[in-house]
Nucleic acid binder design. Structure first.
Lengths: 150, 150
DNA sequence: TCAAAATAGTTGGCATAACGAACCATGTCA
DNA sequence: TGACATGGTTCGTTATGCCAACTATTTTGA
């Protein structure tokens, strides 16, 4: 049964490359986050909130974390003036989390730094290859709408 | 000065795609690790040790962690029979960390599961695109020999 | 050659992130 | 309207990683 190259194949160079790339990318993100005294998770939250407001539970869903975790995280971020809790118009139990002006500014500059910090990795690619890589990656990402939308 | 698209550019879709891909990949890895009662870091260690033996400090360097962290991690892994400490022939202070048979077996099956768990993400790509993506990723990875080799 | 400095690893104390259970307040539904 | 579901918070616990201090070796250089 070994001549059939099926699901039990040994090593897959694409998987390895994806995993390797993921670790290096996360390492860079962690470093940049730490330089701003932000946890990686908070940086993710700031990034997510750049173009929307979300409730605690939606945020938790996005990140794959528990609501209680987000509750505390938002708490500390709010104390630092990065986000604010706005009462939901439609549901008096819920709060909408939004960036403050300071939070937005921080999110922007962190994003810029991440881009720069990642640049050495992508610099060796010609513009056409950069576009190709981007498009290929996007095709491997979970499509919004597919999957765990519940 | 805004017509010159220089280093302060706003959003970069390639960066976004890399970051997004990294988070999704790490999420999959974490889930698979947790299913085996392994921390993500320990899974990394098992993966690294599949084709070599390393000292504590080399392992720490690989992972960007402190030696003390690795010392404890190896301790627990050794107690679980996954790795063993072998005295170094050349340096009586040092230990070489190696997989046990059980550790090797676990590493292999975890790797297989990761491949399967990641398959849905890469399945939509044709073989030629898979190869292209792999090669482009490899070109963005830190070249061994370049960088922090000291 | 031998004392000083460097390196390998370990230990212990501390901070932080995340989990899960228990708990109110509000919403929804039969 | 009463039962159940949902949104969020609080609290206690666990795990991961850091740092500083320490011992045992190895390396260096005067």
């Amino acid at each position: 049964m070994s001549s059939y190259a099926g699901a039990m194949e040994e090593a897959d160079p694409l998987t390895d490359a994806l995993v390797q790339s993921a670790f290096e990318t996360i390492a860079v993100l962690s470093r940049v986050s730490a330089e701003h005294d932000l946890s990686l998770t908070l940086v993710r939250v700031l990034g997510i909130l750049r173009d929307r407001r979300l409730r605690i539970s939606a945020l938790a869903g996005f990140l794959g974390l528990e609501r209680s975790t987000l509750s505390g995280l938002v708490d500390r971020a709010a104390r630092r003036g990065l986000v604010e809790r706005l009462p939901s118009a439609s549901d008096r139990r819920a709060v909408e989390i939004a960036l403050t002006a300071a939070g937005r500014q921080l999110a922007t500059s962190v994003a810029a730094e991440v881009r720069q910090a990642l640049a050495p990795h992508t610099a060796s690619l010609a513009p056409a290859d950069r576009r190709r890589l981007q498009q290929l990656l996007e095709r491997t990402l979970t499509q919004p709408g597919t999957g765990a939308a519940k």
